[in-house]
């Protein structure tokens, strides 16, 4: 890969890392696994960068890689070459060592894996039904059904614990804290 391509890759990925990490964390609910998923995804993206950068929808391409990594829970060889043993990023709790799980994260964690995946992919990553279905290797009808069930369950869970004051208004309402 030319140095230009690497710079382009770094620029592209840097701007989106936080977003991918949010998606990964909401998917798996675990700080370290989320880091693993993102690391796997960005490594794989680098390997395929020459091809990926020509994709019509690069963001969608990466989201698909991310959800596949989550579904498959594969540990890629190349990430492991460097991750093995006592690397700083693994296990280290980093800045604060403290993770405050809020209500939404907990409610998501209680959903079945499929429902959680479709909600995060569709409403955080803005993936269309067809793309989610392709990434999850299931039918669009299945994605729609899981979306409906996931939304209903999530709302019911959150509604039990706090008034859904901010629903549809663009604010989280009283749900946080």
């Amino acid at each position: 890969m030319r140095a230009d391509d690497t710079s382009e890759y770094v620029e592209f990925v840097s701007a989106r890392l936080a977003r991918w990490h949010r998606a990964a964390y909401l998917l798996c609910g675990d700080e370290h696994r989320a880091d693993d998923l993102v690391q796997t995804t960005v490594t794989r993206l680098y390997v395929h960068w020459a091809r990926a950068r020509g994709a019509d929808n690069l963001d969608g391409y990466v989201h698909r890689m991310l959800v596949r990594a989550y579904i498959d829970e594969r540990r890629l060889a190349w990430s492991k070459v460097w991750l093995m043993s006592s690397t700083p990023e693994r296990g280290a709790s980093g800045d604060s060592g403290v993770e405050e799980r809020d209500l939404v994260v907990r409610a998501l964690a209680e959903l079945p894996k499929g429902q959680r995946t479709v909600l995060v992919m569709r409403f955080l990553c803005d993936m269309p039904v067809e793309s989610v279905a392709a990434a999850m290797r299931c039918s669009t009808g299945n994605v729609k059904a899981q979306t409906a069930r996931g939304l209903a369950t999530l709302r019911a869970r959150l509604g039990e614990q706090a008034p859904f004051a901010g629903a549809g208004t663009g604010k989280g309402g009283g749900l946080r804290e």
Partner: peptide, 22 residues
């Protein structure tokens, strides 16, 4: 409403390492 919730949920800081990915 769910979009907003997903966007605002508290998540720990990301620790992916681009240098290592490269």
């Amino acid at each position: 409403d769910v979009r907003v919730l997903l966007e605002t949920a508290h998540v720990p800081p990301a620790r992916a390492d681009l240098a290592r990915a490269v």
